[in-house]
Simulated scan of single mutants.
Amino acid sequence: MHALPEPERHVVATAWAFRYRVELDAALRFARLGERLETLAAPEALVSLARRATSDEQRHAALCEELALAYGHLALPEPPAAVAEVAPVGLPLRQQVLYELVAACCITETESAAVLTTLNAADTEPRVRQVLHDLLRDEVAHSRLGWAYLAREHDAGEVAWLGRHIPFMLAGSISPTLFASGTPAEESPVLQRHGVLPHAHKRATFVRTLEEVVLPGLERFGVATAPARQWLAQRQTAPA
């Protein structure tokens, strides 16, 4: 790997270590979703997608760990034993599963695929390119799981109730600092070579994907997006 100035190296190592933890959490989440989809008698194809996603995310975690250590990260967290519930307390299981699949797949995995697509188009280190390609292939499939389940639930009944919850899903999918100014190291263009988008580029990718893919997709299935659009507008106009 090409040498990096220390501030940029730290940003890259921290980013891959963060992805490591996110992938471990996702593996547990998809395992739980697979069980719940089976309980709800969802089509076997969707149950199988969730189970495959579990093994995908475990493999992703190992790849992210490899790169975090290669860039000098010294203290990776222990694998989590459980993952937090994201759906509001009190929802029936069917709505709880729909909420979690929309949050995890239609939003988080779709946004992740957009970031990875952008990074795959960049001139990256050979090993980084291999890892990014592997991650992107699987994240696209994970995104499709959420959209397929949303389509099924839309055909079976009412999904408009999700609209008021989308801002909470969006807030949970991003770093608290995404809409703040980045440090000089976080904005360095050399980050892309090592699999990390500069901060402003990452924010722009999030917004573009939300406006062009996620929100139109939700609207297509009858989910109101006015609350989400208001949430986005407030963050874009807030002082950095």
Rank of each mutant, 00 (worst) to 15 (best):
E44Q: 11
T118G: 10
E44M: 01
H133W: 15
E38A: 07
V47A: 02
L37N: 05
N120T: 07
A104S: 10
E38S: 10
R52V: 01
P43N: 02
E65R: 13
V131K: 07
L49V: 01
D134N: 12
R127V: 14
L37V: 05
P92K: 03
L116K: 08
H73S: 07
R137W: 07
Y99F: 09
C105E: 10
T110P: 03
T117Y: 15
C105S: 11
T54D: 04
Y71W: 13
V97G: 01
L98M: 04
R36C: 06
R137Y: 08
L91S: 13
V102I: 06
T118E: 15
Y71V: 05
P80V: 00
L67R: 07
I107K: 03
A81W: 07
E111K: 08
L91P: 15
L93G: 05
A87D: 10
A141I: 04
A41M: 00
P43C: 03
A53I: 00
R137C: 08
A104V: 13
A84M: 09
F30D: 11
V115T: 15
L40G: 06
V89D: 15
L28Q: 04
I107E: 13
A81S: 14
A122I: 09
L93F: 02
S48T: 12
S48M: 02
T108F: 12
L136I: 05
L132W: 10
Q58G: 12
L76A: 02
P88A: 04
R94Y: 06
D134Q: 14
V102K: 07
R36I: 00
T124W: 03
Y99A: 03
G90R: 00
L28P: 06
R32Q: 14
A62C: 08
V140F: 12
R59K: 09
D56P: 00
L119N: 07
L135I: 03
T110W: 02
L49N: 06
Y71Q: 00
R51G: 04
V83W: 06
L33A: 08
V86H: 13
E125M: 07
L136H: 15
V140I: 14
